[in-house]
Design a protein around this nucleic acid. Structure first.
Lengths: 222, 222
DNA sequence: GTGTACGTCGTACGCCGTACTATGGTCGTA
DNA sequence: TACGACCATAGTACGGCGTACGACGTACAC
């Protein structure tokens, strides 16, 4: 019988369990709150035990990113390319909103994991089958990724998440910092945004559809 | 007379000097290489002396980001909106390529500095004067920023910078990891990309012009 | 002259990632 | 059943981090 631990599910460690708990911890406390010691505590283990499942923290972070990619829906095969790309982009945005730490990790992870590669292959396949010439498919893929990750990056850097939070912060924080004579246009747009309501999902769709439409003409030029 | 220090330019510290040296250090060693001690060493000072110019490291990072925004060209006023946005976007890409650490900092900096605000005001002004309705200007501004920062984010996560480096890594690293039967499309596009040559500046212009053209129709609908 | 305020310093504390070493339980084989 | 090998786990320790604290020189106002 195993020694009693402070965690209910004490079914022994495994790389999968370690990585999953790391993701949960990062979701809860942000990437700054993720340390090997705290992760080990959360697993009811000693700090050094983790190093039997990951070579070092870098490898742990790589594995966490790949978990994120596993959560992103692959482009469905049975529809037109725009719907397929739309689906996977929306899924990606949701996943990245759920795991905001992932964006800050992307910049420093250079070698893609298996789920990431599978994802890239599926997206490239979808674009090629839709009639994009090889290099155009590369451009389109790149642009779509830029959009998805760029959006997530900007969204993560905003100190609010909902329309209400935005309205509250606009009144209490932003507008007081923006003298109307020095920043007339920012005042105008902040006021308009408060009136209209800030809607991240809608904002995402707006730009996404613009990008998808802009890519359409590049398709038949094979 | 001041005590002799290990650094040539020993004209006394100041917040500006501290921040400038921090930027230089981050350029040279990356954001991981930037510690208060190393920064103090580079300035020929003790670690704690820095805390008379910045409240804590967070404030230092905020100030560094604002220095980056100072370097980005404001949209010129005398041309059409597309040329103006093009200029400032290209400038932003160059600046972010020069300071790759800036992108990883953006995600965690939530309150914009003065240069950042001035920049936002200028961009918003340019779009409004070009005839974008208030909310459309917001959408356009957001989309352009998504593109610029998203591009920089992706570029920073690539382990190569030039066409030659890419070609070398493709042969030595990427293709060996991609069994052709499992990843046929990625193989195809990697080969095509090696043949065509990877060109980050060109890739940036390609997507930028696509986005600018897509935004044009939103302009007159006031 | 002398008080005061400020720039700078060394030191200390509690974190971090992780190298090294020890330990105890499990299991294949005799 | 006994033993030896293995391996998951734990303990300790080291160097580096951000930074709180208090002491030291000295420039300047009176």
């Amino acid at each position: 019988m195993r020694k009693q631990r402070q965690v209910a599910s004490d079914a022994g460690l495994s790389k999968q369990r370690v990585v999953a708990e790391a993701v949960r911890l990062a979701d809860r406390e942000g990437v700054h709150g993720l340390s090997m010691r705290r992760l080990a505590d959360a697993l009811g283990a000693g700090a050094m035990s983790l190093y039997h499942y990951v070579a070092n923290k870098e490898e742990l972070l790589d594995a966490m990113i790949d978990v994120v990619f596993e959560e992103i829906e692959l482009p469905p095969e049975e529809t037109d390319w725009q719907s397929a790309m739309r689906r996977r982009a929306i899924s990606a945005r949701q996943v990245l909103a759920r795991h905001p730490w992932a964006i800050s990790l992307m910049e420093s992870r250079t070698s893609p994991g298996p789920a990431h590669l599978r994802h890239r292959e599926a997206v490239t396949a979808c674009l090629r089958k839709a009639g994009f010439p090889v290099l155009m498919a590369t451009h389109a893929h790149w642009l779509l990724d830029v959009y998805v990750y760029g959006f997530a990056l900007q969204a993560a850097s905003l100190p609010f998440d909902t329309a209400d939070e935005f309205a509250g912060m606009a009144e209490d924080v932003f507008l007081p910092q923006l003298p109307p004579d020095e920043f007339p246009y920012l005042n105008e747009s902040a006021a308009a945004l408060v009136a209209a309501g800030y809607d991240p999902a809608g904002e995402f769709i707006f730009g996404l559809d613009l990008v998808l439409a802009a890519l359409e003409p590049l398709r038949a030029s094979a």
